[in-house]
Design a protein around this nucleic acid. Structure first.
Length: 208
DNA sequence: GGGCCGATCAAG
DNA sequence: TTGATCGGCCCA
């Protein structure tokens, strides 16, 4: 069947949109994906881990679609991507947030810091943690059941009118590229994030 | 070999 | 607003 798996790297943003609503299951917890970001090694995308070419860390991004690219950040968190596009061209969708729909007990145990259930997977580090995954899952498949994480399509695709877009989070470069996508109204998607690019500050203002 | 900094999170 | 905490990557 035709899906994000078959899209070229040049359409990784389309793949990201398509992945919204998909169900992620790993280690007894299921999450419905509500927020994603697209990354590509094509052209000038300094935001991408792949923009300087293949390295030991990002090699999976250049590999087969449907694999997991997991990396550690800030020395203590892990983030997950689903690899897209042709072999040899870097493209991936960062899984940013989701809603826990099964395995609530285990989810709460894995994220004791969560103040509410909507906060269980409300960020890329949290999402990875709530699913009990880490860098050990790097390079595994998410489509054939051979890896710890399995992706399953939702009963119906997310309606286009429910999908909102904005600049990627934590990315200083390429701030004009609206490659973050989320499902409107989802509590797991942080509301404080602005939907439009912030303008550069003109100057600092002193307080009297 | 050294030094800097990040696709983050939670507490002050 | 800031500290935690460490691997990857650039430069010497």
């Amino acid at each position: 069947m035709k899906s994000w798996l078959d899209l070229p790297a040049a359409a990784v943003d389309e793949a990201a949109r398509e992945l919204l609503g998909w169900l992620l299951t790993a280690n007894g917890v299921t999450v419905r994906l509500t927020e994603v970001e697209a990354y590509s090694g094509l052209g000038e995308d300094p935001a991408s881990h792949a923009h300087r070419g293949v390295t030991n860390r990002n090699a999976v991004m250049f590999g087969q679609a449907g694999r997991l690219y997991v990396y550690q950040i800030y020395g203590m968190y892990n983030c997950m991507n689903v690899v897209c596009g042709e072999v040899g061209v870097a493209a991936a969708v960062l899984l940013r947030a989701g809603e826990v729909i099964a395995g609530l007990e285990q989810a709460r145990e894995r994220r004791p810091a969560a103040k509410s259930d909507r906060d269980l997977a409300g960020g890329p580090g949290k999402l990875t943690q709530v699913l009990g995954l880490d860098r050990g899952a790097n390079g595994t498949s998410v489509i054939d059941g051979s890896g710890p994480l399995t992706l399953v399509p939702p009963p119906a695709p997310t309606p286009e009118e429910l999908i909102e877009a904005g600049p990627r989070v934590g990315v200083t470069a390429a701030h004009d590229v609206p490659w973050r996508f989320w499902i409107r109204g989802e509590p797991s998607v942080s509301a404080y994030r602005r939907h439009t690019p912030r303008l550069p500050p003109t100057r600092s203002v002193k307080k009297p």
